[in-house]
Write a protein that binds this DNA or RNA. Sequence first.
DNA 1: CGCAAGTCGTTAGTGGAGGT
DNA 2: ACCTCCACTAACGACTTGCG
Length: 409
Amino acid sequence: MYFKRINMNKYISIEIPNKDCKGMFFNCETDLKKITSVKEANKLIGKVFKIQLRTRVNGKMGKKIFTFESKKITFLKAIEYVASKRTEVREILKNNGTLRKQKKVEESSVKIEEGETFLDKVETFLETKEISARKSTIQNYSTALNIHSKPLHNKSIESITINDVQKIINSMLTNRAAATVVLYARTLRAFLAKHKASVINEWEELSLPHVDNKVDYTLSLKDTKKIIYAMRNYSGTEIEGETFYQFEEIKNIFTFLLSGRRINEVLQLKYNDINLEEKTFKVPASTAKGKKELVFNLDNYLLDAIKSQARLNRIDLSKNLIDKKLFKYTKETPRVHFQNLLRAMGLPKLRLHDIRHMLATTLVQNKVPIADISVLLGHSSIAITEARYANKSKDQASRALDAFNDIIK
DNA sequence: CGCAAGTCGTTAGTGGAGGT
DNA sequence: ACCTCCACTAACGACTTGCG
């Protein structure tokens, strides 16, 4: 089976005669190499369309995407708009050296106080955290403390009041999602608690938005089968009875994801975590989300994936396995491939993590014991699996009723 | 007092932008 | 064309609390 690759970020050049469209690219799915008329463009436009402006200033390259709603603006007007913004974009690139959003939060106007400041503590705090916490955690701490907490930077920890914190929260609420603000408050609280700040005692006076992060997930068995088949054969094409893969490593990563592992657990996997004699592999405590070592069996799909990957990496599996990672990618690449695959199949968007939901939901619906599923997912207790995937009372009741009907038959 | 709902700290996902 | 980084956002899972 062969899946045609669709590049989600495909931009083709716009070359409409007598129009200023230098450096403009149109985001669409087409085999065309360029757009030469408005008519062509209109055929490709959906509800929203994007025009990317590429420009170079002093050898520094910049890309800027403009998004338009087709209801509100015509393609031609959109091009004129982008053209009118070119000077401004180039000016920003020239002055800032980047088009990336500048970090927000205005400079603090608070006078520097005596002694060690908030900012001094942040530096040492982050250094200490780096020893134990993951990269993404450090990133979050850093953003919260270095960027969002700017108004506190020059204060001493002791002088911070709940009002100071509330001010930051209120200003964040105007332009950020509630989840982000709640996360920020928690992170700041953890930092202040570590330094025994007295403001912690007044923390419940803080007014915070409510965040509901429940997941509602449904997927038919038919679609599930389609996805699993497509993932296991991703980018494969058969030539004279032999299968070749355009993205063999991605296919192998997909195979591991389909065994219920998290993307990070897969990408951190090393050859010496694999035990081919016992047909097992381990997820070390440092990688597993629960920070406890997990061991899983290798089924034939996984064994094939390991063999395929070893061939790609020129690793001899018959020798002692070395301390080397199987996969070279970061999590973004498999993600994009996964979304391309879903798109090519005309299925709705899913996240890589949804593969776990897919497995669990399918298994629960087909009456596999929760305890087994829990181990498969690497949950530390059945309660977690139950809470997330099983409609416990309903399922148990129907199971009991089925059993009863069998008995009295 | 046993369970589930809520809390809290950590980790994963998203889409634009940068680089080769 | 392909891969990675960054700022922002969403979610997970162990721990805690509250309720019948």
